[in-house]
Simulated assay, not measured.
Amino acid sequence: MSSPEPVAVILSRGELDAVLFDLDGVVTRTARVHAAAWKRLFDAYLREHSTDPDRDFQPFTQEDYRRYVDGRPRLEGIRCFLASRGLSLPEGAPDDGPDAETVHGLGARKNAWFLEELEQRGVEVDPAAVALLEQVRAAGLRTAVVTSSRNGAAVLRLGGLEHLFDARVDGVEAGKLGLAGKPAPDTFLEGARRLGSEPARTAVFEDAQAGVRAGHLGGFALVIGVRRSGETGALLRAGADVEVEELSAVRVEGAAPPRPEFHAEGAMP
């Protein structure tokens, strides 16, 4: 059994009022489920729509996932990856089914496969994330989950995590409000607003390069890159203030009186 990672980050109660957490890859391990669904989607599509049958099939890779898809809204991820391969699709409409050859259709197909994978695998929760969230809340800091996923509510419910967050900004909420997805900072800024916290007194935890860039562009007090895979230092180059491999490397310092009852706009049910 490996020893805990040395403390690399200290969250100071005197300097922070709130903490924002990405969901997939930070609090849960569902990023693996997303990656499997994306690979299934794009490998099938690329095999079927190869523009040069004489060339070897080039599958969807982990690097493709990190560069073009991870942390982005679903439809934007589809557009970005297809463009990287010189491909495009008509947008279609939000009610397109999974058989439609449109961006929305591929989005529906991916989501169906994600939910199928989730049903089979369940939601794997990171114990270190739960321990950190409990420390953060015990210190009187407010918490929100900010995720591009439109399945955020279901993942939180299945993982038994709802009680750890004061508010949620997910893909559904972002769509309702017309918020630009990561790497734009809009969803993180909305999360801080719902918690009544200024970005300068709010920390962000992210595992995706797009999300790290969003936190950096939003002017947040501290952007912690959580490296679950990929090259060491990539999240630092994307704008993170510090990069850790495990959330056990984070400690909260400073106590506060018992948390007052707080009702955030868009609070968790």
Rank of each mutant, 00 (worst) to 15 (best):
R72E: 00
P258H: 04
F114N: 06
F60N: 10
A8R: 14
L89W: 02
T102Y: 06
F114Q: 02
S12N: 13
A112Y: 00
V136H: 08
P6G: 08
P6W: 06
D24I: 09
R79N: 04
R142C: 08
D170R: 12
E206I: 08
A249H: 04
E190M: 14
A153K: 06
A208Q: 03
E124Y: 05
L189C: 11
H216F: 00
D186A: 13
A83T: 02
Q120Y: 01
P4I: 01
A128S: 14
G140P: 14
D70F: 15
G218V: 05
T51G: 15
L20Y: 02
L158S: 10
T187P: 11
G140H: 03
L133Q: 10
V226N: 09
V125P: 15
V27P: 14
G14N: 05
D70Q: 15
E63Y: 04
R228S: 09
V204H: 07
T187L: 12
R47E: 06
A153M: 08
A208R: 07
A154L: 15
T202N: 10
A139Y: 00
G266D: 06
R66K: 13
A31L: 06
R251E: 10
G175R: 10
E261S: 14
V242M: 08
R74F: 00
Q135G: 03
L20P: 12
R13C: 10
T61R: 14
A138D: 11
H263R: 15
V244I: 13
F81W: 13
V19G: 09
F114M: 02
G196H: 04
V123W: 02
A144R: 07
L41T: 10
G196A: 07
R32C: 03
D17C: 15
G181Y: 01
S2E: 07
F205R: 13
L132R: 08
D241R: 10
L89R: 08
G233N: 08
L161E: 02
G160E: 01
S2T: 08
A108C: 06
E134A: 15
A138S: 14
Q62K: 13
R79Y: 00
F21A: 05
V244H: 05
L164F: 12
Q209G: 15
G107V: 05
P269M: 08
P127Q: 00
P73W: 00
L222N: 05
T143H: 07
E76I: 09
V103N: 01
E101M: 10
P269A: 10
G107E: 01
R157Y: 03
V123L: 12
A234C: 11
